[in-house]
């Protein structure tokens, strides 16, 4: 998993490189458009184009039947049934390309998410760092945090035994990429913490064995299998994305832009969706 992640990180690092220093929306704009176009090609290659066209025509045809037979209740119900059936047929035609699209789409979403869901801390901001320890042999008060220069512990650690969770509140004093250390006797685990303005991949969580967390946070290596901690998280602030002056969630921006891009280019690519 870490290997795949590191390869993907490198690839996406290249994609995002030209946008370093630019406003974050430039990158999402470009990636969304590229994604839209790429998906069109994949869709075209993996779907039964003729079948989709026929299925869509059927739906449209039955649609017209509503107008044609608007005075006949019986025919109206028959038409509704036809619409449902032809819609199911249409959906079934999308299954195959959907399967093919799932993997690349997931990768792109994760890579975008790691950059746009959260942003690094800014200087002067505080955040909460949490650690979950599932191993019952580990006592929570055995764990200590080691902060590099530039980070300050804001409050003493909070131990929640019922959740097997530890919380530290931290303040960023200067910009940089910091390595947090967590010590339990001789053993140490690490987690990266970023304090900067520029767009960069952010790992809000890392885990030892939780696949979901690993999938969603590709930009940092997982916790080693032998380590005492299960999950380490940083409560990074959510990123506010402004595209053309409108503030929106990155997913919305991504879907709208990729949708519009693909929609307007589908004629040129010559794909039936």
């Amino acid at each position: 998993m870490d290997l795949i992640n590191s390869i993907l990180n490198a690839v996406f690092g290249l994609v995002f490189m030209p946008f370093t220093g630019l406003q974050p929306y430039w990158a999402i704009l470009c990636v969304s458009i590229l994604t839209g176009v790429a998906m069109l090609f994949i869709f075209k290659a993996t779907s039964d184009q003729g079948g989709i066209k026929r299925a869509k025509n059927l739906v449209k045809g039955h649609f017209l039947a509503i107008r044609l037979y608007k005075d006949d209740l019986g025919l109206m119900f028959e038409t509704m049934k036809n619409i449902i059936v032809s819609n199911l047929l249409y959906m079934s035609k999308s299954l195959r390309p959907m399967l093919f699209l799932t993997i690349p789409m997931g990768i792109i979403l994760v890579q975008l998410g790691t950059r746009y869901e959260y942003r690094p801390l800014h200087v002067g901001e505080t955040t909460v760092i949490s650690m979950r320890i599932e191993d019952p042999a580990v006592r929570l008060d055995e764990v200590e945090i080691e902060l590099p220069d530039g980070l300050l512990l804001d409050m003493p650690p909070l131990r929640i035994e019922s959740l097997r969770e530890l919380n530290w509140r931290i303040r960023a004093e200067k910009a940089g990429s910091f390595e947090l250390g967590f010590k339990r006797g001789e053993a140490t685990v690490h987690k990266q913490l970023l304090v900067q303005e520029a767009l960069t991949p952010v790992a809000a969580e890392i885990a030892r064995s939780n696949i979901g967390v690993k999938l969603m946070n590709p930009s940092e290596a997982s916790i080693p299998q032998a380590a005492f901690a299960s999950v380490i998280g940083i409560d990074y602030p959510k990123r506010d994305l402004e595209v053309f002056g409108i503030s929106m969630h990155w997913l919305v921006a991504f879907f709208v832009i990729s949708l519009v891009a693909a929609f307007s280019l589908k004629g040129i690519v010559g794909v039936e969706v």
């Binding site: 790429a38 819609n87 999308s94 959907m98 979403l109 949708l259 693909a262």
Partner: peptide, 25 residues
């Protein structure tokens, strides 16, 4: 007119068509 880019999106148009047709009906 477009099944969006990605997993799950393939179904979007169907849902919309269904929704629109039921609305029209």
């Amino acid at each position: 007119a477009y099944i969006g880019p990605g997993a799950g999106f393939a179904f979007l148009t169907s849902f919309l068509m269904l929704f629109a047709s039921f609305f029209m009906a």
